[in-house]
Design a protein around this nucleic acid. Sequence first.
DNA 1: GCCGTTTTCGGCCCGACTGTTTTCAGTCG
Length: 605
Amino acid sequence: MTQAVDDDTGAKEAQARRVTNRDVAAELALVADILQILDANRFRVIAFQNAAESVRTLSQDLHTLHAEGKLQSIQGVGKGIADAIAEFLTHGKVAEFEELKAQVPAGVVEMIHVPDVGPKTAKRLWQELGVTSVAELRAAAEAGRIRVLKGFGEKSEQKILRGIELAARRTRDRTNIGAARPLALGVVEALRERVAEGAIARLEIAGSLRRWKETIGDVDILVVSATPQPVMEAFGTLPQVVSVLGQGETKSSIVLGDGLRVDLRVVEPQHWGAALQYFTGSKEHNVALRELALKQGWSLNEYSLTATGEGEAPTGETRYFEEEQALYEFLGLAWIAPELRENRGEIAAAAARTLPDLITADCIRGELHGHSTWSDGTASIAEMAEAARARGYRYWAVCDHSTGLGMVGGLDAARLAAQAAEIAELNARWEAAGVDFRLLRGIEVEILSDGTLGLPDEVLAELDVVVASIHSGLRQERATITARCLRAVRNPHVDILGHATGRLIGTREPSDLDMEAVLAACAETGTVVEINAHPSRLDVNDVYARRAVELGCKLAINCDAHEVDGMAVLPYGVAVARRAWVTAADVVNTRSWDDVRGLLKDRRR
DNA sequence: GCCGTTTTCGGCCCGACTGTTTTCAGTCG
């Protein structure tokens, strides 16, 4: 359809079409920062922060919701913010926000992202010293110009310089879980080695790592110890430590070499349940839980419940919980798995006893996407199969790249036939030996730029499993890449849509796909949606996986292994599924191959 | 600015640590 563009309205609207959920979330967060510096009502600030977070984790596209007049259905978005979002979507900016931005230099907003510099500090340094950027902040601190201000001293300057240093050290705000988890486990191991036998009675990694969030802000370690002091000292002097941010009687913070911050908290045994709950979060879950407690007449903190006098218990009565589950039960809730604690309906479900029976890693009976030296893998098919068997799998699909992905020397029909002979030979050997394991013939077929596939249909039809993925042209415009993806999904031979958005966490943005349309098409055609378990991908993510199941899709959790150790990432994929409220029944590769085959699209084999 | 098995108005979670103070504000989680 073509339309005359007779003024700049059309151009603006064309530009506005490129506004993404992420853009809106960033804008709302920026407004929250500015409002903080301007010392606005703190609840107004929180409202913008909440709205930003809701938009950021939204599964549906804002443009769609706007067109349907449903912006206010987003949690934390009322009339005011809905109107602002609508204005941003159509015009690319919001008049009211532009006025706010004009009041505070962008560099001052950046300053509040320096650790230990908050809105109050940034505002004073800006207004009293004329500091308007992080660079100027560093210069002022180095020149000793900050200590002259009332309430600041030499240590304040050092703290600011250290904050700038730490901010520069970390390449991004959050660390990928695939990097953070081994680092955290290493800290725990080193800590245990350096304290006396029995000094640590209980220990758990809490925080976003316990919730298996895809990126980790910092690591929270919770400990019960009769002798906290030596534990604290050992923690502060671990070999991994590059900086000690603080050390008190019950709380210490350190920074590791790559900038990851680790907090250690020591609590008494009777506080364990409340403390573990508290430090596991999320903040949003905790706020909702405390509100629920207040309605029942109890104030909740990291130690206990204390009666407010509003309920039946006398004011000041205190309840302690040695286990987390007892705390949840006291509030009338089933225990909630950490992965669900994001305030996405889990508290209501726990109250109604309708929480899902979440999938676990040992439910996985085989995988439907992995590579070998036939394309860009580092191990032979036989080696990969042995690794799969060692993990207790009953089947593993050899899905090397097809032609159409130049750099990895993908398989054409002839090489695929040659590969089939190798697979058949291995399968025959196991069958003769009575081994309950089989390799599946598969392909990771390239979705070409127009939505056609890297191999012809008649070749795909012979295979057990066809995974279709996009590896290039990821930056195509929304309508183009969506149509391309839909065409592949509608191919009757495509069983699984591989790593749909193509994102690489922290380094490559997801494609601008209309995921609602893609997932709906997967549901309609019976195309299985992959959760790619590689921690740099985790694609689809928890939000889309949950939406996929809501729309009626089946999922597959695949490691996309390129080496024998590549199957070790399975827990990350399972965690995405758990965060998406997924049960074993939603995931095809929790079943035997005979059952999986019946669920796949192409039934002509 | 948002929101409602207390409410369309009046709430909106709670504590540790730090640095600079002589009682607390700021920051963070």
